Amino acid sequence: MSSAWLPPGQYIETIARATSYACLYFTDSRGRPVQLRATRSAEAWQWPGGNMDPGETPWQCALRECLEETGIVFGGEPKLLGSHFIGHQGEAWPANHIGFIFDGGTLTDEQIGSIVLDPAEHTQVRVQTVAEWEAVMTPRTFARLREIDAARRDGVVRYMEA
């Protein structure tokens, strides 16, 4: 291993690549998670969010994606519930994937009912208990839901690897 200084463009070629996403975790007034059914994902249930655009911070991404995917203009402060790391998956996804999950707070029944989905991305809004979610989610995505819900309840930020 060389300790010689490299110009940034050359140095970047020597380190792991990563993409990143950010999202907001909402519950209803009874504490039940609110999720959206994705149109293009094997892991169909997810929170409003998506991949970061160039120059965008995780928080800016979460706000933008929430607005695009639900019509909700979130006005709260950034409160991180967890971060999520998915390692390089070969040709299926040739980079690490890093996520930031923020607390979106509580939505009223009226707010949930007024969600406007982008039909190219999501087909349904669903509100269920954590136990009910386990039956319809993959084990991997349910583990993330369980940890983020616990972080919301106990105030301890979670770090998760997949």
Rank of each mutant, 00 (worst) to 15 (best):
D154L: 04
A150F: 01
P54L: 12
I12K: 13
E147T: 06
T141H: 11
A16T: 07
C23W: 01
W45P: 03
G82M: 05
A135F: 09
Q35M: 15
W45T: 02
M52P: 00
S114K: 13
G155L: 07
H122M: 04
G49T: 03
D118I: 02
A135D: 11
E56V: 07
C61V: 03
I12L: 14
P33H: 04
C61F: 03
G82P: 07
V157G: 01
A150V: 00
E91T: 08
V130R: 12
V156D: 10
W133K: 03
A38R: 14
H122S: 15
W93T: 01
T141C: 02
W47S: 12
F26Y: 12
E65N: 04
S41L: 10
I101D: 01
A135H: 11
T108K: 03
E132N: 11
G76H: 06
P48V: 05
A44G: 05
A150C: 09
T19I: 00
G104H: 09
G155A: 07
G76Q: 09
S83Y: 08
F26A: 04
P33L: 03
H88A: 02
K79C: 12
W5T: 13
C23E: 14
P94S: 09
R140A: 15
Q10V: 13
F142M: 02
C61G: 01
A151T: 08
A42S: 12
P48F: 02
T141S: 15
A16R: 12
P8Q: 07
A92C: 04
Y11W: 12
K79A: 14
S83R: 15
A150D: 11
E69C: 07
A143P: 02
K79T: 13
D28F: 04
R37K: 15
T70L: 06
G87Y: 10
L117Y: 10
A150Q: 15
N96H: 15
T141L: 03
A135I: 00
E68S: 11
F74N: 06
D154F: 10
Q46H: 12
A135Q: 13
A16D: 12
G9M: 05
P58K: 05
V136M: 11
A131R: 14
G55V: 07
R30I: 00
S41A: 15
G87T: 05
A16I: 01
F85V: 15
C61Y: 02
P54W: 08
W47D: 06
Q128S: 12
G155I: 03
N96K: 01
I72T: 05
